[in-house]
């Protein structure tokens, strides 16, 4: 699994249009890795299952289990999958390059949303989705102090 910084670079990099399907697969893979970071931060092993044909959607479901507010990125994940389908099912479409660019923006949104949560998870209650992580850290700190 690449680091978040590496993923940021990959997602933000200009997209190679000659091999549009490979570029779409690259973005889909990067999106999966972003979700893997979230799942790992929750103390779980990222699933290898798929949902509706996409591991990305299975990973989102895993990340949202017991944490309904994580669904704030559900549609973003579905849009990544939708754009992947658009590009790979119609690679010769006149708007393929634009579709790929849009897939890049949607993937970037997923990255920003999740990396933002991870970055500030220990700093405060900035978002309801970070609560389980923060609470666990607070409990650990309290236990260490008491010990």
């Amino acid at each position: 699994m690449r680091t978040l910084a590496e993923l940021e670079t990959v997602i933000a990099a200009p997209l190679p249009t000659p091999d549009i399907e490979a570029a779409a697969a690259g973005l889909l893979g990067a999106a999966e890795e972003v979700l893997e970071h979230w799942v790992v931060a929750q103390g779980q092993t990222p699933t290898t299952d798929t949902r509706e044909g996409f591991r990305l959607l299975a990973l989102h479901r895993q990340g949202a289990r017991g944490d309904a507010s994580f669904n704030a990125c559900r549609e973003t994940c579905r849009e990544v999958a939708y754009h992947y389908n658009l590009i790979t099912m119609q690679p010769d479409h006149e708007k393929s390059a634009e579709r790929l660019q849009m897939m890049g923006l949607v993937t970037n949104h997923l990255y920003l949303f999740i990396s933002g949560k991870l970055q500030v998870a220990g700093l405060g209650e900035f978002c309801c989705s970070s609560k389980p992580i923060r609470s666990a850290q607070d409990t650990e700190k309290t236990m260490r102090k008491e010990a």
């Binding site: 549609e75 939708y82 920003l112 500030v120 405060g124 900035f126």
Partner: peptide, 28 residues
């Protein structure tokens, strides 16, 4: 495609950098 995506509103005070990037992405 980002009609229901996060605007970063809840991050604004604690992590305004991320909020700006999220909004920039929505605008783009």
């Amino acid at each position: 495609p980002l009609k229901t995506a996060c605007c970063g509103g809840a991050h604004t005070l604690s992590d305004s950098e991320t909020s700006t990037k999220l909004v920039l992405n929505i605008l783009r």
